[in-house]
Amino acid sequence: MSASGESVSLEYRPVFPPQSTVVRERSLTPEEMEKLGNDRVLVSDFKQQKLETDAQKNWDLFYKRNTTNFFKDRHWTTREFDELKNCRESEGQKLVLLEAGCGVGNCIFPLLEEDLNIFIYACDFSPRAVEFVKKNALYCTERCLAFQCDLTKDDLQANIQVGTVDVATLIFVLSAIHPDKMQKSLEQIYKVLRPGGIVLFRDYGLYDHAMLRFKSGNKLGENFYVRQDGTRSFFFSREYLAGLFQNAGFETLVNEYVLRETVNKKEGLCVPRVFLQSKFRRPVHS
Rank of each mutant, 00 (worst) to 15 (best):
C144H: 06
C102D: 01
A146R: 08
I118M: 15
E83A: 13
Q48H: 01
F147Y: 08
E113C: 11
E251W: 08
K265T: 07
Q188K: 03
L186H: 06
F224L: 09
W76V: 02
G196I: 00
D150Y: 09
R13K: 15
S44K: 04
R238D: 01
V8K: 15
G92F: 00
E11S: 12
F147P: 04
R65N: 09
E25Q: 01
N223M: 12
F172E: 06
N223Y: 12
R194Y: 10
V263P: 02
D82K: 13
T53K: 15
A55Y: 02
P110N: 07
A3G: 12
Q277D: 07
F70E: 05
R128K: 10
T21L: 13
R273A: 14
E6M: 06
C87Q: 09
Y240N: 11
Y257M: 08
V104R: 09
R202H: 01
L84P: 05
K64L: 12
P179E: 07
R13A: 15
L244T: 06
Y257V: 04
Q161R: 10
V8C: 10
V284C: 09
D166H: 12
V199P: 02
A248L: 05
K35V: 06
H285D: 13
S175K: 02
K85Y: 09
K279T: 02
V15H: 14
Y225G: 03
A210G: 09
L95A: 04
L244M: 13
L259V: 00
S20E: 13
D208M: 08
Q157N: 10
K191D: 07
N264T: 03
Y257C: 05
A158H: 06
D166P: 02
A3N: 11
M1H: 13
